[in-house]
Design a binder for these strands. Structure first.
Lengths: 106, 106
DNA sequence: CAGTATCCCTCCAGATACTG
DNA sequence: CAGTATCTGGAGGGATACTG
């Protein structure tokens, strides 16, 4: 028994669904390196993502309580995205992934 | 700066690609709870996966050096899957995910 | 038991154009 | 700037049948 079974496969599956897809974890990563990013900032940061995919993934993450969206009623429009408390709690996951990524690229 | 930048987004992206999809992380999870599993064991463990998807994901993971495949030349056939050293190195990732999954389900 | 081989189809990613 | 709307091809993935 290498992992505790206090967490069921079902719980893990639910958590994985929140992060599923090619983009979500990368978006979260960039929100860790800079705590607040505007839509256009994210487009530049997440290389290769289309406008449509970005807004779609952002909406998903927001719905799942991982990121927050703050709209400033100004012209031109200004919207800032940041991590929620739940999103910030993902830091150990991202750090573990980084460590793994480095260990296998060497 | 909340995460170290010794790891580029590119490295992270490569690592994420290895784990991408609905099934791979779950397969790895089950190989952590039981260090060695046969094909039919995995089919039972990973609920809802089809034979085709299972073999496809297993091949992907094997190609990326995360799992190993051992064939016993017996009748009926016997094939065992397990984690490689690289796969075992994913334990902190899985553990962090578990912790997160539990914290948000509560 | 542990796969292959097909057929089929949905749905999502990507490109493009447009808007408040 | 921060989106929405629409079209499209192709991958993802299910069902079924077959095999060493």
């Amino acid at each position: 028994m290498l992992l505790s079974h206090t967490c069921s496969a079902q719980e893990l599956e639910d958590a994985l669904r929140v992060l599923e897809g090619r983009w979500k974890t990368l978006i979260i990563y960039h929100l860790f390196t800079a705590p607040v990013l505007r839509f256009s900032d994210l487009r530049r940061a997440v290389e290769g993502i289309s406008q449509k995919m970005l807004i779609q993934q952002l909406r998903d993450l927001e719905e799942n309580g991982v990121i927050s969206r703050k709209v400033y009623p100004v012209v031109p429009p200004k919207v800032e995205y940041g991590l929620t408390k739940d999103g910030l709690a993902l830091r150990p996951v991202l750090q573990a992934l980084q460590t793994w990524a480095q260990s296998r690229s060497s």
